[in-house]
Design a protein around this nucleic acid. Structure first.
Lengths: 126, 126
DNA sequence: TGTACAGTTGCAGGACTGTGCAAGTGTAAG
DNA sequence: CTTACACTTGCACAGTCCTGCAACTGTACA
């Protein structure tokens, strides 16, 4: 999907460059996927909220049920459920029912590493 | 503001647990940094926009000036400048002036890996 | 000094997102 | 069957973010 993207009128030729042509505009026609870009942005956006990130950090340690998360973070249960729903929509977390409780955990190790890297960077950065 | 937030009636004591007390609520008092969490979320949020992410993917390959980015991505220059400003505020990109042009590049390898991981995950995921 | 180019900033309008409470669903226990 | 608990969903409000255009700053060059 979206190979070579719509680039009809202004292919960066040699003499038609409308902006700086100081000689360093040789680039490939964007070989990265367009929809992947959008999907990645959606994931990052879901990660871009302190409350949700806190949830994920807890879930990185182990599976938790909703009420436990709500209790530890001192937040109303509907709020936690709502945030988990956002994360689940982006397939960042997975849920399984166990009797009366619903346990959530991170979807895969890839996501786990993403969260870890982000927080680590934030800690050492400032 | 709002430290410890208003939570008057339901402090989770030992026997007063209002939610599930099935015996798996032994957790540490959140040893992860609170401000780091907020900082990480800010970074993720800045990454959570397809247009900005596209910019970063281009910058991951090499430094680019604003007009080059605008030309390749087929966007108005002020829009690109605005997005770069957001990324610079979060210290995701760095800028240096070179004569008439302003070149941008990723702030460090950590960010670079974060972007790569996110996009890679999005590509293989779906 | 004046002109052209490269970027930045300001300011509306509109869309999207998070929040809180109330009501609904579903499961286990009496 | 009824009650209690665990969670989910709906809805309205407020805040926030993205966008586009116009005006401004700053640099190079004649």
């Amino acid at each position: 999907m979206a190979e070579t993207r719509t680039q009809p009128s202004s292919t960066p030729s040699d003499d038609d460059s409308p902006s700086c042509r100081s000689g360093d505009h040789e680039h490939q026609p964007l070989r990265f996927d367009d929809s992947a870009c959008e999907r990645a942005a959606a994931i990052f956006r879901a990660l871009g909220d302190p409350q949700r990130l806190r949830l994920l950090i807890m879930l990185e340690a182990r599976s938790c049920c909703v009420s436990e998360l709500a209790e530890v973070l001192q937040e109303p249960l509907p709020a936690v459920s709502q945030r988990l729903r956002v994360l689940k929509t982006e397939r960042i977390v997975r849920s399984r029912r166990e009797g009366k409780h619903v346990f959530y955990n991170l979807a895969d190790a890839h996501i786990s590493r993403l969260v870890t890297n982000g927080v680590m960077h934030a800690m050492e950065d400032s």
